[in-house]
Design a protein around this nucleic acid. Structure first.
Length: 566
RNA sequence: GACCCCAUCGUCUAGCCAGGUCCAGGACACCAGGUUUUCAUCCUGGUAACACGGGUUCAAAUCCCGUUGGGGUCGCCA
């Protein structure tokens, strides 16, 4: 620990293992990263996997990909190689998985026990639960009573441990109020009675979060702890532990929480909540509708899930059900937003703005700006609600600011990953034309995908609802009717030799001039219905070009038949 | 319940720390007109907030106290 290393800023993002990065975590990581960059320091990623109930295999750190996608790159931490070959991680202070640092923790744990600053305790979980419950029923605040544990002699402790009796190690908390200094929240004094002798080593030998954090932050020379506000009270514990171990005290900054618009915590469970609400509002149990199985979910699983609020469907199941019901899932994780076609720089911008702002009226900015201007004194103290409408508006602006070439490139990459069928079913030229035609009407990279399905579906799968009032009006009202226009257009389009935007425009606009009073809508709308079954499509010449001559004519004929217009 | 923190339009927020220039500014949403071959856009205009009550002061959104409201924490989770 050289003296010059003390002056360099080192921040860390320390999530527990997960396949997906939550937006709240993403923002924490972003601020940690920005602060380190601003000061020419290091941003460290550490995996807090001291809970053996959570696995730590490769899939469990799938969120690394999300971090990388956002452009938040870590200087030290788990090694990660992106698809483009760029890498992140490594470093001299590893390992960066806490589960691989057990010997380190044990050393400090023993030190505290030796010094009498910590002690073994043999209470069972059931006993503790009972005590908490009793305190609660008596209207008292529960505090762990250390007398039983600390009255044990060293020999007694040793004997019981040798006999294999499970034991935890608890920290003997000094009986003094604790002052927390926080860069965002200011100073707070926590009365000693609010804390008790917390567990620092579990019965399985793993340190608890509190202990591992304190040891690792010291050993990794972390200078600034930037984390969510839910950790604020924990800081008191960490401060005490640092004092007991003779460690340095990092600077603390606690970020406000992010909520749903309704004030509830943004959670993975929100997806299941949305699906359950949709299923209920539809009345008919989809299990029956789909013949006992919904979207590959067995009837039993489905019924159990529907009843139990705490139950969550698997990732694929939820997606399949969402697709089957036509109910969009709320985006919660970073990869949800990626799938929904948000640009990483937009998500970064919006997330940064949720709880921080540069002052004045500036709200659109990039990472470089954030690195330059970020400061703790402009971080909000209270929680913020996540407003998807505003995020969408930001994304819309960013998409519109893209050149068409750039949009086409991004849209192709998006489809390659999430909708490969568009690339498979269209020629490269037609795919590009579709992308370009959709650019101006896109708010995300994904929002035109659903409405573009008719381009790649077979002609027979286009259905015409002759009872639909709006469709009927377009097809059958007026003189000539839309249907009549289609019939008249049939031979004209059949005669178009080189089927392209230019030739179609020429042929159709000539027809419109002569037979529709120059009103393109009179002709374009029936055509849209014919080819898509709806009145919605990209610009009509591009649409027909992409679809091709044969399919266009076939659909027109089918449409003419479908609308009799008595 | 105890402890800690917070409080400006529906939402995110500027302004507050160094009180007057704020009958409070921006963005998103919403509403009304207009443009547009559909959808989506786009343009113009509009509605909308200093939680409440006391102080301090010539003057308070800005400072102080209280009330109310919101959030966090109270695990062998992190």
């Amino acid at each position: 620990m050289s003296s010059d290393s003390k002056s360099i800023v080192r921040t860390r993002f320390a999530p527990s293992p997960s396949g997906h990065l939550h937006v709240g975590g993403a923002r924490t990581a972003l601020f940690c990263w920005a602060y380190a960059r601003q000061h020419g320091g290091k941003f460290i990623l550490r995996i807090e996997d001291t809970d053996q109930k959570r696995s730590s295999d490769a899939a469990s750190v799938g969120f690394l990909r999300d971090l990388k996608w956002l452009g938040i790159e870590w200087d030290e931490g788990p090694e990660f190689v992106d698809r483009d070959g760029s890498r992140c991680g490594g470093g001299a202070y590893g390992p960066y998985f806490q589960s691989q640092r057990l010997d380190l923790y044990t050393k400090y744990l023993q030190q505290l026990v030796r010094e009498g600053k910590a002690y073994y305790a043999f209470d069972t979980a059931a006993e503790l639960d009972a005590q908490r419950k009793a305190a609660r029923e008596a209207g008292r605040n529960y505090r762990y009573d250390r007398t039983a544990a600390t009255s044990l002699s060293a020999e007694q402790v040793q004997r019981r441990r040798d006999a294999g009796e499970p034991a935890v190690i608890r920290f003997r908390l000094p009986d003094e109020p604790i002052v927390i200094r926080d860069e965002i929240l200011g100073e707070a004094t926590i009365p000693a009675e609010q804390l008790d002798d917390f567990v620092i080593c579990k019965a399985d030998g793993f340190p608890t979060y509190h202990f591992a954090v304190v040891v690792d932050d010291e050993l990794m020379q972390v200078t600034h702890v930037i984390r969510a506000q839910e950790h604020f009270m924990n800081t008191a514990r960490h401060l005490r532990l640092q004092e007991a171990l003779g460690f340095r005290r990092p600077v603390y900054a606690h970020l406000p929480l992010i909520f749903n618009p309704d004030g509830s915590k943004m959670s993975k469970r929100d997806k299941d909540k949305a699906l359950r609400a949709a299923v209920r509002s539809m009345g008919v149990p989809p299990v029956e509708r789909a013949g006992g199985e919904v979207a590959s979910i067995s009837a039993d699983t489905f019924a159990a899930w529907l009843k139990d609020k705490d139950r969550q469907l698997e990732f694929d199941e939820a997606n399949a059900l969402s697709e089957a019901l036509g109910v969009p899932l709320p985006e919660i994780n970073v990869d949800d937003f990626r799938r929904s076609g948000y640009l990483p720089e937009v998500l970064i911008n919006y997330l940064a703005l949720l709880g921080w702002n540069p002052g004045g009226d500036v709200e659109k900015f990039d990472k470089a700006f954030l690195v330059e201007r970020f400061s703790f004194d402009r971080v909000m103290k209270g929680p913020a609600k996540f407003d998807r409408a505003k995020l969408l508006a930001f994304n819309h602006d960013a998409i519109q600011a893209l050149s068409t070439e750039e949009f086409v490139r991004l849209f192709r990459a998006h489809c390659a990953e999430f909708h490969p069928e568009f690339i498979e079913h269209l020629t490269p030229e037609h795919f590009d034309l579709l992308a370009a035609a959709n650019h101006k009407r896109s708010k995300t990279l994904d929002d035109q995908v659903r409405s573009s399905r008719f381009f790649i579906d077979g002609d027979e799968s286009i259905t015409y609802d002759a009872a639909d009032k709006n469709l009927r009006k377009v097809m059958c009202a007026g003189e000539p009717t839309g249907r009549a226009h289609l019939e008249a257009l049939l031979p004209i389009l059949q005669g178009v030799s080189d089927w392209s935007v230019a030739t179609l425009e020429q042929a159709i606009s000539a027809y419109v001039q002569q037979h529709a009073g120059g009103n393109l809508g009179k002709v374009a709308q029936p055509l849209r219905i014919a080819i898509s079954g709806t009145t919605i499509s990209p610009a009509i010449y591009e649409t027909l070009t992409i679809l091709g001559c044969d399919a266009t004519l076939r659909r027109m004929r089918r449409c003419i038949e479908a609308f009799a217009c008595v």
